[in-house]
Design a binder for these strands. Structure first.
Lengths: 338, 338
DNA sequence: TTGTAGGCGTTATCAG
DNA sequence: CTGATAACGCCTACAA
């Protein structure tokens, strides 16, 4: 691979001049610029971005840490971040944390050691204190889908409590009183907040929270099926099921149909996130929209504004979830023991 | 951020010694090793991997280029690659090509310029010649889901032609004669191969290929709905619909139900890829399994073997698709004009 | 506008 | 086993 040195020799100019035409950051006469360009083309020269990064301590790349690489949620998020950053000529280095503290930390270390100009994190296992500490370092850190009060300026988050409330409220407004709830892993903040919203809606409507109609799932399809199975076995009646995300909702839908339910007549189901497939379940899933893609864009914009001097960008730190009404929730016509 | 130099000063040893304990590649007396370790801990030292990479021209990271970051297909693929590599202590740098030639090339340039030890590509727009040329360079290149004959040793691919054949054959075996086909973008090799398999199955069963029952979709949900709409408008009868991927199949299912079809009675539908949500459509989607996750693992194993000296790994270059029978295809009982 | 030279944080080759 | 010291490829004052 050709180096800047060889280019300079071939073009008969100095290293510095070549560097200047590469970075377009200083005036170079058009004539010498052409000479250099020709030499670069001839040698098939490509700047070594590692060396650039070491010398300038900038890398034009931002690190992203997500829990998983698969799944609609993270896919949308990464796509949003990448689209925005790429349009600005920045690159994205993605790594994963798998919701495990050690792996999250290791991923962060990696991104920092790669000289990322900024880092966008979707972490779930690591503590607030750790993050606060991390932000004292020299690499700018941003948090997606997680609100740490001390770091609110660096957070792009969703009001999950409100989302949880909206879901339950909408169910109640459809006349449901016996409502089962499948939550996500409780160490995840989103899970907890959504549950809190659920409880608030219950309380405001004078419906008591029932432990037997509560199940902790895993945010995956199996969480939905396991949860529904659990509720059915408990023999407690219920006319509606709230799932803390769409994956679990679709697992529940599939399980319900396999076990003789006619949907939505026998059971109303609502999800959360509005992943792409939510409109392809049957019945089409009523859910809470989580604008992850937009949030990804926004996180990227925040980086552009703070770390790449694009000052004319306005930032929204907090996003609001909205109810998406489709076909999986209907008016409760059965009388149900309360 | 502390440097190796500060560590060496604090531990009262030379740079070289510190480097040795970091890399564990040369003998260092236990006593000095401890001194260094203590100093590193005290300073919170982290090696700068950019500098390491520049000096050693190795980076312990492998580049991955996919078309999109979202979508089940790429998610599974990336997850497979990452899991395998991470377990081996390697890191993954992911970037996208969006199926556009320029962006694919730019992504490749980026990965090369980042000193990746190897690069795994899922490219669709770039030509075979370009890839063959690329492989002459010093960065090892591997191809996912694409077979370039001259580069077969570096490819991990699926027999898409066989998959296309299997899908159509299974439909025919269920008594369908009038079969509509929604293909993917024809510049993509998978698309073309799947279509070729489809045509072979038709030919072997003496069914003629009909242009009016053929539609080029976009591999997304809209491709399925647009395609089905097109067929319905054409007034030509058909009892089965083959979609070249599951996204389009679920789009078609949703569209069909919205337009009065009872599934699968009025129309049998088969997909391709067996993405996670395929089992959550209604009816559950019969499809062709595409083991992308395993292929991701295998691609990673290939780089471990070839570029990280893990010789005891055996490699499978070609994967075979299999038929997954669920509920969306049934025996054709209607007589259909042929 | 252009060139010179020092430095970015490590690795790796020699001696000792 | 340990220590100098020259790369690695590029950026960036500072000079010219």
């Amino acid at each position: 691979m050709a180096t800047i040195y060889e280019v300079s020799k071939l073009a008969d100019v100095s290293l510095a001049t070549v560097s200047r035409v590469i970075n377009k950051n200083a005036r170079v006469s058009e004539k010498t610029r052409q000479k250099v360009l020709v030499a670069m083309a001839e040698l098939g020269y490509r700047p070594n971005s590692i060396a650039q990064s070491l010398a300038s301590s900038r890398s034009n790349s931002v690190g992203v840490l997500v829990s998983e690489l698969h799944g609609s949620f993270f896919g949308q998020m990464m796509a949003g971040i990448e689209a925005e950053l790429r349009a600005a000529g920045k690159h994205v280095i993605i790594t994963t944390g798998h919701s495990e503290e050690e792996k999250e930390k290791e991923g962060i270390e990696f991104l920092i050691s790669r000289n990322c100009d900024a880092i966008i994190l979707h972490v779930e296992a690591v503590s607030d204190e750790y993050l606060i500490d991390l932000c004292k370092g020299s690499t700018p850190i941003y948090l997606m889908s997680r609100l740490v009060n001390e770091l609110s300026e660096n957070c792009i988050s969703l009001d999950n409590e409100l989302g949880g409330f909206l879901a339950t409220q909408s169910i109640i407004e459809q006349g449901h009183l016996a409502i089962a709830y499948i939550t996500g892993p409780q160490f995840k903040a989103d899970s907890k907040d959504r549950l809190a919203g659920h409880k608030r809606a219950l309380a405001e409507n004078n419906i008591s929270f029932s432990d037997t109609l509560y199940f902790e799932g895993d945010f995956k399809e199996t969480g939905g099926s396991d949860g529904l199975k659990h509720f059915i076995k408990s023999k407690k009646e219920f006319s509606a099921l709230i799932c803390a995300n769409d994956e679990m909702a679709s697992g529940a839908i599939t399980y319900a149909r396999e076990h003789g339910f006619t949907l939505p007549n026998d059971l109303s189901i609502i999800g959360f996130d509005n992943i792409i497939f939510a409109r392809h379940t049957f019945p089409k899933l009523t859910t809470i929209d989580n604008p992850v893609n937009s949030m990804g864009h926004m996180a990227a914009k925040l980086v552009l504004k703070n770390n790449y001097q694009q000052n004319d960008i306005s930032i929204t730190h907090s996003f609001e979830p909205t109810l998406i009404t489709r076909d999986s929730v209907i008016l409760n016509t059965n009388r149900v023991k309360k």
